[in-house]
Nucleic acid binder design. Sequence first.
DNA 1: ATGAAAGCGCTAACAA
DNA 2: TTGTTAGCGCTTTCAT
Lengths: 357, 357
Amino acid sequence: MRASTENGDQERDRDGGGGPRAGRRGPRPAGAATISRVAEAAGVSRATVSRVMNGSPTVSPELAARVRAAAEALDYAPSPAARRLALGRTGTIALVVPDLGNPLFQGVLRGLSQAAGKAGRQLLVAESDEDPEEEVILALEARRNSDGLVLASPRAPAERLCSIGERLAPFVLVYREVPGLGAPSLSIDNAAGVRDLVAHLTGLGHRRLAYLAGPPGSAGNAERLAALRAATGGLEVTVLPCGSMFDDGHAAAPAVVERGASAVVGFNDMVASGVLTGLRELGVGVPDDVSVTGFDDIPFARYTTPPLTTVSIPKSELGRQAWERLWALMNGEGGGYNVRYQPRLLVRGSTGPAPSR
Amino acid sequence: MRASTENGDQERDRDGGGGPRAGRRGPRPAGAATISRVAEAAGVSRATVSRVMNGSPTVSPELAARVRAAAEALDYAPSPAARRLALGRTGTIALVVPDLGNPLFQGVLRGLSQAAGKAGRQLLVAESDEDPEEEVILALEARRNSDGLVLASPRAPAERLCSIGERLAPFVLVYREVPGLGAPSLSIDNAAGVRDLVAHLTGLGHRRLAYLAGPPGSAGNAERLAALRAATGGLEVTVLPCGSMFDDGHAAAPAVVERGASAVVGFNDMVASGVLTGLRELGVGVPDDVSVTGFDDIPFARYTTPPLTTVSIPKSELGRQAWERLWALMNGEGGGYNVRYQPRLLVRGSTGPAPSR
DNA sequence: ATGAAAGCGCTAACAA
DNA sequence: TTGTTAGCGCTTTCAT
């Protein structure tokens, strides 16, 4: 499957010891200077070059200068691959998410990328495409190529995660909490968010709600739905299967109307925006005829018509915090407590008093 | 800056040859099986284990089975770090973008991630935060840790890019074309998109346009603006400094009204959506009083009120294609021709006939 | 302060 | 078909 070839480098002979055999194949970037060449050019040992490159203070200024000059002249930079092997450290951390198209994960990606970047770490990203087993495989592989992992795995079964927990360490879990897993978890208090939403809605007089359900199997959806049921004791709640995308919400509009709900609670902002549009197309006024709420506060939520009432969650903060935790873990400090971020209700124009009728 | 420690592993002694010295420090994942241990357990040489792990057909079935059993029992997987060094190949490709929050780059990220993932490659991602020099530094570093690079670098000066072109190879450039750079480029024909937009608008009778300019220094903005000027011979075009985010567009609404433009051409969909909202807040009807167009066709553009007229560009297709090109390049096949994707005009509700007044 | 040498864990010529 | 051996390019004792 792999093309091989390449052999266009002759000039090689380093390795001071004058090894018995010489000619070898060469998967070398063909031109990259090595530590040996620099050492030779500077007239010092490889150890000294290594010391200089790593800023060890135990090198005489003269030598250091000579080495630096030689390195400069040869345009030398240490091979990351060789350092990985020698150091047993990759300088990289990994992020595994189900869907890079989802603003939730984009948020943690950004936060993590910036935090890790600032600390001089590289970031490996993998997308599981919502496949539970794929999440696990990718996590394992990503972890082997990095020093630590941030895992957003809404689908993989808890037991599965626990069974590989040790091989994943150090790692931190985001948007989910798995009891018994030995990793810190950064999650959202979905129930609290839903309660705020429901309180807001009932305060406006709404008694007939419709819930636009997220993808089945999503841990977030399960939590939000359960909280909704718990928070709406005497109320009528219709659960409409929906999804997580604009189009899913859009397609659900007719069903909402048919059920005669006065308020619809979307699984997330995308389905909420979708239903907003769908409702308008159906001639239903929002919020005059029906109120709509979202969840997550994606950047766009402020710009729907009317602007979406939703609960805000700290997406990129999760990424930044994930880095902090991971960093602590990688330094052998404990992972600290789990935290659940409390969402904040954002009342905007898409909700209003229930129509009297 | 780096905490060190770790030393909790004693049991070590491999290396069949019985080397003179023995005790060593050990940055080993503390527990990971090595090829030597598997070889020992299976009673074969390391070479044989390597062969089996790499599916070489030149191993007798018995041996292969024994090796596989031993590997399984020890829970062995080859060290990626060691393979990198031995093979001179990382199994990873890198993507460098200015802003992970921008749907344009998210699109190529997704396309690339999926294509590379399907091919069993890992993906390294770095964000330059719109800093031209940072783009270059990050690109260089990312490239050293990968086998190939996809670079979205709207800011870095062409000469700078050319000067490091060799060290970046193999790589492909997206959303930009740099003559003389020895890398294939996948870009968007911004001028064509703008022409379509202008034709559409003038066809509707618009004569006074306002352009909401993107960030200064953005290559995309420069192209779009130049094309706009070229395409609007006798027309009045006001250029309003704006930016690339929702809020920038939103903030520009008053200026649009003040200039009395009958149509506003947004640098991208985000500023267009922003101005849409801003205009409505000002009591200006869209498209009755003024028409608005965007650029890019981000997922949300269909869901604004009214839905945004824009030009669609193949964001994730760019990512997929980038992988194809990179793959070809990595196999020593030429990079092929540069391609400019032609955007497609999407007429939606945000544009209409110019008011007669 | 500097160098010699022994690996890190794997692959691939080469020999048998 | 299998083993031996020489690296890949770096870091790090240990001895000087």
